[in-house]
């Protein structure tokens, strides 16, 4: 039952995002007909093109048509390059996956470490660590990425400042180009995730049955293993999904900083050139992955909670 509820909620969120995406592109002063015709069309021609393309229909009708097209994978063609959007996305998806994967591999252990330090470490470590994690989470990602470039490539010269991927090549051909972008993605996301997880750790430690176990003299390690960690499983999965999602969206910033040809960079340049079909497709794809990930985490938490289900 709860899994169904999770799925329904995720669908509602996606519909809300799709409305936002559609509405944003609706606000543009020029529409697809004007863009395609360039400057050289008469008002009559424009009107004809609009009615042929259904651009005169009410907004709700156009939205539903657009949503149906998106859902069936018909994402149209780029207004700028004229190439099918699907092909553009496909060409970039691999690079972003490689980057996000590398960043996640760093972010997961880092999140756990920071959350432990800020939530459950010995008292003296805890206070300082909590402040440091909160501070790190406050640093704007763009500034953090710029700082990495300034230190590790400009000042120290250890790593390349840009991460150009050769045409037809893979970012994995030159793994050193992935280091800085992955760090720029992973550290802020991990600090953010650790803030969330640290709260869950504190809540788990504050549960009455933990105090009771301490009162009964249960050894620390056993308290942790039996009375605390099981309660962190669901929050940890949720935080993982949140970290992965924020990391994916943040690829836009990091890929732009490092000139890395991925989906994020594609989205940013499409926004800058008002390439509406590309914006719509990439935004909906990212939103689907992020919302789907959160929903999967919720569903996993619901399914594995022994308290759910019919009482025996």
């Amino acid at each position: 039952m709860r899994v169904v509820a999770v799925a329904v909620r995720a669908s509602v969120v996606l519909v809300a995002v799709s409305i936002m995406v559609f509405a944003a592109t609706e606000l543009l002063p020029s529409d697809a007909a004007a863009v395609r015709a360039g400057g050289g069309a008469t008002p009559d021609e424009l009107a004809r093109m609009r009615s042929e393309a259904g651009l005169d229909d009410p907004a709700a009708q156009r939205y539903l048509r657009w949503l149906a097209a998106m859902a069936t994978g018909d994402t149209g063609t780029s207004l700028v390059s004229g190439r099918p959007v699907a092909a553009l996305v496909e060409a970039r998806a691999g690079a972003t996956l490689a980057l996000a994967g590398a960043a996640l591999a760093v972010a997961v252990p880092l999140t756990a470490l920071m959350a432990w330090a800020a939530g459950a470490a010995p008292r003296r470590v805890r206070a300082g660590a909590a402040g440091a994690v909160a501070g790190l989470a406050a640093v704007p990602q763009a500034a953090f990425a710029a700082g990495l470039v300034a230190v590790f490539s400009a000042a120290l010269g250890w790593l390349p400042p840009v991460s150009l991927v050769a045409a037809g090549g893979s970012p994995l051909d030159r793994p050193e180009t992935l280091v800085l972008p992955a760090l720029a993605l992973a550290v802020p996301a991990a600090a953010y995730g650790a803030g969330l997880l640290g709260g869950a750790v504190a809540d788990a430690l504050a549960a009455p049955h933990v105090a009771d176990a301490v009162l009964r003299g249960v050894p620390r390690r056993r308290v942790a293993a039996r009375h605390v960690l099981p309660f962190l499983l669901a929050p940890a999965v949720r935080v993982l999904a949140t970290v992965a999602g924020s990391l994916l969206v943040a690829t836009a910033v990091v890929e732009t900083v490092f000139g890395y040809a991925g989906l994020g960079e594609l989205l940013v340049s499409a926004v800058a050139t008002r390439d509406v079909p590309v914006v719509q497709a990439v935004a909906m794809l990212s939103a689907t992955v992020v919302v789907g990930g959160l929903a999967a985490a919720d569903a996993a938490a619901a399914l594995t909670d022994p308290r759910s289900g019919v009482p025996a």
């Binding site: 009455p208 049955h209 039996r226 009375h227 099981p230 309660f231």
Partner: peptide, 12 residues
């Protein structure tokens, strides 16, 4: 046996 024993039992 603590003050509120019912809440002191691990719910899992």
């Amino acid at each position: 046996l603590d003050q509120d024993p019912a809440s002191a039992v691990n719910p899992l």
